[in-house]
């Protein structure tokens, strides 16, 4: 008769796992070495130095970028120039004409032609009530 296997009634079955004494000797040495390495690794000053360098680099970079944009954004707006000329009594229209040469006048004409159509110029002149100037001439 085939009796059913029983763990309780059978002799204890061991795991069958083994490890040599050499292994345990080496483990001791290996662990002692690892512990020493871990202790040597924990040097806060060294770690902090790295952080100081990293933070210093970021600060310098931020200041440089900000300064670069600040210095390069000093362009003048047209409104500012107009306002300056208008309220600067020492500069007359004549002074402005004097600094214009032929090439400047041509460039200005081209820009005006591009920007304004004839109809718009006529409309502008009509609205400015300049007939009296024609009459005077």
């Amino acid at each position: 008769m085939n009796t059913k296997f029983s763990l309780d009634s059978s002799p204890k079955i061991e795991t069958g796992f083994k490890a040599s004494d050499d292994y345990f000797d080496q483990l001791q040495t290996s662990l002692s070495q690892k512990i020493k390495e871990k202790e040597v690794q924990v040097i806060p000053l060294h770690r902090n130095k790295k952080w100081y360098f990293a933070v210093a680099a970021i600060v310098i970079l931020s200041i440089s970028i900000s300064a670069y944009f600040l210095l390069n954004n000093q362009t003048l707006h047209h409104d500012d120039v107009e306002e300056y000329l208008h309220y600067q009594s020492s500069i007359s229209q004549e002074d402005v004409y004097q600094v214009f040469d032929d090439q400047d006048v041509e460039t200005l004409e081209k820009k005006l032609e591009l920007a304004l159509h004839e109809n718009e110029i006529e409309h502008f002149l009509d609205s400015q009530n300049i007939n009296e100037y024609y009459l005077i001439d």
Binding site: I13, E14, T15, G16, F17, K18, A19
Partner: peptide
């Protein structure tokens, strides 16, 4: 486990595992 140098179990140990 059968090919493991660190296992010296017999048939019954292997069967149990």
């Amino acid at each position: 486990l059968k090919a493991d140098d660190y296992f010296e179990g017999e048939e019954i140990q292997l069967k149990l595992q």
